[in-house]
Every structure is written in structure tokens, then in C-alpha cells.
Design a binder for these strands. Structure first.
Lengths: 280, 280
DNA sequence: TTGCTCCTCACGTCACGTGAGGTGGC
DNA sequence: TTGCTCCTCACGTCACGTGAGGTGGC
């Protein structure tokens, strides 16, 4: 039965590097049917002439159209729809897809860079210059005491509302908070007054609620939460500033630095406190 | 039961913009289980502390890891595996994916450009200059008479073997053939002596079996297969060359120009014959 | 007869989504 | 009581892939 004009299913499959299952599937859903089916054996016979249709189908598949979309497109084309218009539409979608991938790559690059920097030893206070000014996402919150019973949950909710303003592709971020230095010195209790996304990781365009962290010299202190209670670290930084009579801003930035996976099972982030001081 | 440390499933879902079904699914497959399940009601209670795990899972999902891969990665990380190494590996894969998308876009651009050019009127012979030389995929074949009963099938098979040497992403191509001018003039029959991919569309790096088509002046003739038999077009071109006493190459290139969708139902390609002539 | 291709069910895959039908706390 | 959330099956989705069991031509 197979001859010049009538090709069996295996022949067609090998001509286009697809499987016979694919062709049977296309037949089943009515997307691409053989010209002839032997009613006794059920054998499918395709003609060379109809293969051109198959080529279009396979090409649209490479462009990741669904079979339903392809079906609709083929019908539309037979009605005279413009092939180029469809291609140009898909081109724009492919471009958007590439931008999404690029954003993911940017995020990865920032994370990898961060984990390269992270292992610096905790415990000592350093004076470091930050320049230029940093832009970061920031939101003021009603003071939140770390000793509050619903502290963690409220922090999660604030974070969620802060993240709501940035594109969902920016999943991995480094979360931080701000604390009032005077407030801590006067009460001895640790109260968050704002939340932020670490400038080291946040690469997006500025949406609302960004704030500019001024350039300048900062006293910084790193500690690990499994070794040191935050209150101790804040106390150490506070005493350092008093002893050396530094004039300091009131705002202490608390940034998470550690994104190694160790922090999954234990809450063991490497955290850095930063407060701007005046050296004059 | 829900309090600071124990969050119900809906709360967790809303914090991360996912559905409760997703969390139930992760529980079911053992990827991420609530800390506590009330044995009477079956209610799931999650702790804030364990949400960090979920964040990693959701981040890896954005990077399009499968749930099985994520499960394996989480296990590996608990054994001390390097998070950055995984990210860098994925980064390379994302880069490759972007290149694939770019190739698709290149193909689309070439197709769209082609369809913009295509509508030129068939029927008249033009003298046009082609410069610079064109590189195209070419394969010599044993002479194939268009009148042969298995002509179409053999052409498909030759094409398949020619396409085997280029990357599969290049699905849409413009297929062509070569014919010997003297052969046609002497026998009056149309015999293909080689097959080729149209230089207008083939943008890939040169694999084996490419050939350089010289720059220069070409006599060209367009015709539509539904209006004109190929033999007539070849005859017209042949007579033109004889009448005007052009010295011509022996090789006539036959290129498909039409990639509009009309050619799906009917075999109605716009075809162009090209033969290099000497104007001196 | 052997080996190859062809056929038709029917079920599996992947990461959930979608009802159906029922329960628990404010 | 109403409205909301929670629960467990069970089945659907998408584009095929994978046997199971059987047939047809060289």
C-alpha cells in the first residue's frame, strides 16, 4: 500500500524526527489527520502534499504554542489570517520571556556575589565607608518589640506588604529592619521601627517606598544569631559609640548577610548592624 | 489554635501568594510538612521558623527546578552542599535557554522580512545583482527527474538528510534545488542535481556541506506553481538567455520565496529561478 | 517462521486546579 | 444561623510516553 504518494506513519515520523505517538495524537485530536485510513487494518496513510501542514504545526510547536492554539491558528490562516502578525506577536512574548530570564540571572548573580562576601568574621566593630548612597525598599512600621509574642508573625506580614510592591520574580531578597539607637539606649529593649530590603540584593527599578541611605562612614558589627542575642550586639555597638564619643545617626540598619543554606534548618543568619557616624 | 507560632494553611498561602492546594500538595509528597497536624480535625499548623524552608523551595521553583530536584537539593544542602554551586549551574542553563530563545527570534525576524519582500509580481525576467556572495547549505544528489513517480518522496528524504546537519531549532527554512541549464536545454526534461537551503533564511553557523554562491548579476524569474508548470518557467528563462546571447553559469538555483500560509492548503509557493550571467 | 511495523486501548507523567461533600470556630 | 476556612477523596489538565496484547506484509 505504501508508495510515492502514500506514506506510512513511521516514514512520516522519521522524516520529521518525531514519534509515531505524536502523529497518532494529532490524528486523535483532529489537528492533523492522514489522507487515507485503511478501514480494515486502521493503517494511516499520509500524502507528501499534506506534509506542508505538518511542517507548520511543528514550527509553531517550537514556538511553544499549545496544540489548541495551533488548531485555532491553522483555522484562522485558512480564513486568510496573517502569518507574520502571529509571528510578530510571538516575538514580543519571546522578548518578554528573555527579560524574565535575565532578571533571574541578575538575582542569581547578586546572591552568588553575596555568599562570596559573607564569610567575614563576626564579632568586631569596623568603620567602613559606604559610597555611593544606597537605594532600598523601606517601610516605616509601628514600633515592634522583639519580645512581643506575635513578633515573628507581624514581621512576616510587614514583609509581605513590602514585597507586594516589587515584581514577583524578585523572590530571593535579603530582609532587614531599622532600630532607633536612642530608643534602645533609653529603654534597653529592642524595637523595630521600619523594615527594608537589603540594598546588596535589591536590583529592581525603584517602585514606591524606596528610601536613599546616605553615603558616608558607618560603624558596623556582624554577629550570628545562634551565637549572640541581638540585644547583646546592639548593646556592644551602643557602648562602642559612647566610649569613642562618636556622633551617630539615630537609625541603626540591621541587614541579613548570610544566604548560605545553613540558615534553612536553624535561624542562623549572619546579621550586620550599620550606623552612620560623623568622623569630624 | 492559630496563634503567633502556629499559622493555619490559608495564612501561610496568603503570605507567599500561593494557594492552599500547593501547600497540601507539598505536604502530600513530603516536600514541606506542617510542624503540627491536629489528629482530630486534620488541620495543618505551620511555625514561622519553618517558613524559611518554604522560601527556598519557592525560590528554586522560580528557577524552574522540578519538585523532585528541589527535594534532592534540600537534602543535599542539609548535608552541607553548596547553594552557590547550584545557582551557578542553573545560571549556565538559563543562559543556554536565552540563546535558544534568541535563535527563535532570529528565525522569526528572517521569516517576517521574507514575507515582506515576497509579493513581488511573478512572470517577468529581471537582471539583479547579488552581493556579497551567499553561503548556503547544499548537497549534490543523483539526478532526480520531476516526472519520476517517487519524486516527492525522494526529495523529502534528501531534505531530511540535509537538515540533519543543522540544529533542530532551525525548523522553518526555505527549501530549494539546483538544475543544470544545459541538461534542461538538451533533454527538455527537468532534473534536480542538488538541493539547498535558501540563503535568505539560513542564519546558522556554517556546518559541513555549505557552499559559496558567487556574487554577481543574475537573471531571475518568479512564478507561482499553481499558475505555471516549472518546465514552462525554465523554458522561458532558457529562451531569454539564448535570445540575448548571455553567457550563463550552468547551474540554475530554484528558491522558494513564499512563506505565507496560503501555501498550506495548496502547493502554491512563489518560486524564483536564479542563474548567474556575464554582462561583459 | 522471524523480525519489523502497524493497530487499539488503558494508564502514567507533572504540579497542581477543581469540584463534591462534609466539618470546625467566630 | 450564616459565612468563612478547613478537611479528604477523586478526577481533570497537557502533550504525549509506555506497556499490553494483537495484527499485517516481507
Amino acid at each position: 500500500m505504501e508508495n510515492d504518494t502514500h506514506l506510512m506513519i513511521g516514514k512520516v515520523a522519521s522524516l520529521y524526527d518525531i514519534t509515531v505517538q505524536t502523529l497518532r495524537h494529532y490524528d486523535k485530536i483532529g489537528l492533523f489527520r492522514p489522507e487515507i485510513i485503511n478501514p480494515e487494518t486502521g493503517y494511516r496513510y499520509y500524502t507528501v502534499a499534506q506534509l506542508r501542514q505538518l511542517e507548520y504545526i511543528l514550527f509553531l510547536r517550537k514556538l511553544e504554542f499549545s496544540l489548541t492554539e495551533i488548531q485555532e491558528a491553522m483555522d484562522a490562516f485558512r480564513q486568510g489570517a496573517d502569518f507574520s502578525a502571529l509571528l510578530m506577536q510571538r516575538d514580543r512574548e519571546l522578548e518578554a520571556q528573555m527579560q524574565k530570564l535575565q532578571k533571574l540571572r541578575d538575582t542569581i548573580a547578586a546572591l552568588v556575589e553575596m555568599s562570596d562576601e559573607a564569610p567575614a568574621a563576626p564579632g568586631d566593630i569596623c568603620i567602613r565607608e559606604f559610597t555611593p548612597p544606597r537605594t532600598l525598599l523601606f517601610q516605616k512600621i509601628s514600633p515592634l518589640n522583639v519580645a512581643d509574642p506575635d513578633f515573628s508573625l507581624r514581621l512576616m506580614e510587614y514583609r509581605k506588604s513590602l514585597l507586594g510592591s516589587i515584581p514577583p520574580i524578585q523572590t530571593q531578597y535579603s530582609f532587614g529592619a531599622t532600630v532607633s539607637l536612642r530608643g534602645f539606649q533609653e529603654t534597653g529593649t529592642l524595637c523595630y521601627t521600619g523594615i527594608l530590603l537589603d540594598p546588596g540584593l535589591y536590583k529592581g527599578d525603584a517602585p514606591e517606598s524606596t528610601v536613599l541611605i546616605p553615603a558616608g562612614f558607618y560603624a558596623t558589627l556582624r554577629f550570628r544569631r545562634e551565637d549572640t542575642r541581638p540585644e547583646e550586639a546592639y548593646g556592644q555597638l551602643s557602648r562602642f559609640l559612647l566610649e569613642h564619643r562618636f556622633r551617630a545617626d539615630d537609625t541603626i540598619l540591621e541587614c541579613a548577610l548570610d544566604h548560605s543554606f545553613s540558615s534553612i534548618s536553624r535561624l542562623s543568619e549572619l546579621t550586620e548592624l550599620q550606623v552612620r557616624i560623623s568622623l569630624t
